[in-house]
Computed example of a mutant assay.
Amino acid sequence: MPTVEAQRVVPVPPEVAFAISQTTGVTRLRWDRFIVEQYHLDGATAAAKGVRTRTRQRFGLTMVSRYVSFRPPTSVGFAMERGPWFFAKMGGGWRFEPLAGDPGHTLATWRYNFGCRPAWLAPLAERIGTVLLQREIERRIDGFAAGCSDPLVLAAVGSAADSEEPPTPAG
């Protein structure tokens, strides 16, 4: 199964990076240009293991995914339940680690794996998909890195921390 990965160093500690990665609504759209809409399903109001989300990507593709892991402030993982016809399966995870020697910075690592269908087309589709998905993941993590320096995004996360209520997350 093909895997794509992107890493960036961001100028915030892991707990802030994690909180930014889980923002929703207007705050999320400030940094995440990959999506145009994302929300929790089944009455969930916050991310947690087992929570499902629906995401619509900027080209109109939609996916329903489930959090398979949720470990603030270090990592989050998802698996696709329903998505574009050409994905047989897809999953991913985001990891946030303190940068060695610099506790105010975080190494963000985003990794995705996928398989394509139909089986007879998968070898070619997966080669093409790897190139396209890698480009999208690089753009998305660049947006995340910019969000980690955006005063409005930082204020939104800080406001939630100050009130002792976590930001409403979506992965």
Rank of each mutant, 00 (worst) to 15 (best):
M63C: 11
G101Q: 05
S75T: 06
A88C: 04
M63T: 15
R52Y: 10
A47H: 01
R71E: 13
M90K: 08
R66S: 09
S69V: 01
G101D: 06
V51Q: 01
T55N: 06
L107P: 11
R82D: 14
S69I: 01
T74C: 08
H105P: 00
P98S: 04
L107M: 12
V64Q: 04
G60P: 01
W94P: 00
A79D: 15
A47Y: 01
K89L: 09
Y67P: 00
F59G: 09
L61I: 11
E81H: 04
A48H: 10
P98D: 01
R82V: 14
V51F: 09
W85P: 02
G60V: 14
W85I: 10
S65V: 10
S69L: 07
T53N: 12
G77W: 02
P72G: 04
P72W: 03
V64E: 07
R82I: 13
A47F: 01
G91A: 13
D102W: 02
R95F: 09
H105E: 10
F87K: 02
T45L: 05
G91N: 11
T53Y: 00
G104K: 12
G93N: 08
E81Y: 08
V64K: 03
A79H: 08
F78D: 05
M63N: 12
F78H: 07
F86Y: 14
R56H: 06
G104H: 14
G93W: 04
G91K: 02
M90V: 08
T74I: 09
P103F: 00
W85G: 07
R56M: 11
W94Y: 05
G50P: 00
V51D: 00
F59R: 09
G101M: 04
P84F: 13
A48K: 01
P72Y: 02
P103N: 07
R71P: 00
T53D: 13
V76I: 10
P84D: 12
T74M: 07
R52T: 09
M90H: 10
A47C: 12
T55I: 15
T53E: 13
E81A: 05
L107Y: 02
F96N: 01
G77Q: 05
Y67W: 11
T45N: 04
T45I: 10
R71Q: 11
E81C: 06
